[in-house]
Nucleic acid binder design. Structure first.
Lengths: 215, 215
DNA sequence: AATAAAAGTGAGTAATCACTCACTTTTATG
DNA sequence: CATAAAAGTGAGTGATTACTCACTTTTATT
């Protein structure tokens, strides 16, 4: 079996009709950008690791920055993917998720699997967002247009049901996201070598979150 | 008044006997590393912004990496500074902080002021930690040796007083830190332009944290 | 099988990189 | 004031950078 299935999923290889060498280039770039950062990685190193000539990289990507964006864009999109699902809000309102906790649980496990699967690409995305204002702007646009509004509806829904504290929805959204993201960052970026019991620690984190947010 | 007082505090200028030009170099380096990252900033650019010859930088710092460390080390130290105060644990045990909430409140405000004051240096520290394993190792060493043990004592103290849930202390520590750090990261790094009411949002965050952790 | 388009190559290029060094200027010391 | 140490300078260095281009190989189309 191919160990690079995750890459195929992330980059949508079939639809893009990427050749073997192109995939090698993207894989090498993701790995090296994640390890050393975009600016500290040279195109000659990427070519060497990918087993192609340096010119091949520039045949497919006009500039080094274009290569970065080919990695970052799908990752950005996938980062907020659940909120793009058409029936997502519907699921919440039509009692597929009867409680906020179920909703949180679903997102938490979903994003846990996402980060775990695409870790190197997620690394690149978050690290380089700090240095490339265009990437940060794109993220903020997508967040406000596609995530924030739906999230807010959901929060207000469960506030009306009396499940959540009467805090401003943006505060509840922030606390929910930073609690989940805080776990994922600690688990995968800050202390990846610590002997985690993931299931249990996720459970504790959800309990903490629900206690903290209950009316 | 000197707008660079914060720089003087962070780098301990008087004790180090830094000259005017050395300070200019450090200030320029912090600003540019924070904006573009260490790897994407050239020593010639730093020299230009600092108003010195490029050779002057290397007169004081053997390598570019040494210049980075001159910024990162004091920041790393200051990041966990409260835990280095001699009477810190004593204050907690001898009823200067009667409740965990008071302790959390003290640290929260303290670290809020720290990040606000030294923001560019904090940026550099966190951004470059991802790429320089020696910096990350140093941070982890300092954390486990000086922060974790004291924090654990404090958590266990308030667990025995029945104030905190019977979770593993490391889970409570993690949740406490990620909740505070999550606010600071959102406030200063991710959405610095959002119209925050800091006092109120800190208060809400503390209430959330205490609700989430109570027995 | 002929042909064109696409993919791949690697030597070459100008610009920039971190860093050196012989030299000048400033500061500290007796 | 004399002298040496420290601070500051900027032209120069070899290495490396992102990127180009004339050319070869592979793939798709008829």
């Amino acid at each position: 079996m191919d160990e690079r299935k995750w890459l195929f999923d992330l980059l949508n290889v079939e639809e893009q009709q990427l050749s073997e060498k192109q995939i090698n280039i993207l894989q090498a770039a993701i790995e090296m950008f994640a390890e050393k950062g975009y600016a500290a990685t040279s195109t000659s190193e990427i070519a060497k690791r990918a087993g192609v000539a340096e010119g091949t990289i520039f045949r497919h990507y006009k500039t080094k920055k274009d290569l970065l964006l080919a990695i970052v864009k799908p990752t950005l999109f996938q980062s907020v993917a659940p909120f793009f699902a058409k029936k997502f809000v519907k699921d919440v309102f039509e009692n597929e998720y009867e409680h906020y906790e179920q909703f949180v649980r679903a997102i938490f496990h979903n994003r846990y699997e996402f980060v775990k699967t695409y870790l190197p690409a997620v690394r690149v995305f978050w690290q380089e967002m700090a240095f490339h204002s265009d990437i940060k702007t794109q993220f903020q646009t997508i967040f406000t247009n596609h995530v924030y509004d739906k999230f807010k509806q959901i929060v207000e829904h469960f506030q009306q049901k009396g499940e959540l504290a009467q805090l401003p929805p943006e505060t509840i959204i922030r606390l929910t996201i930073t609690t989940i993201a805080g776990f994922l960052a600690t688990r995968f970026l800050i202390m990846p070598d610590y002997p985690w019991d993931d299931e249990q620690e996720i459970e504790r984190t959800i309990q903490f979150l629900m206690n903290g947010l209950k009316a």
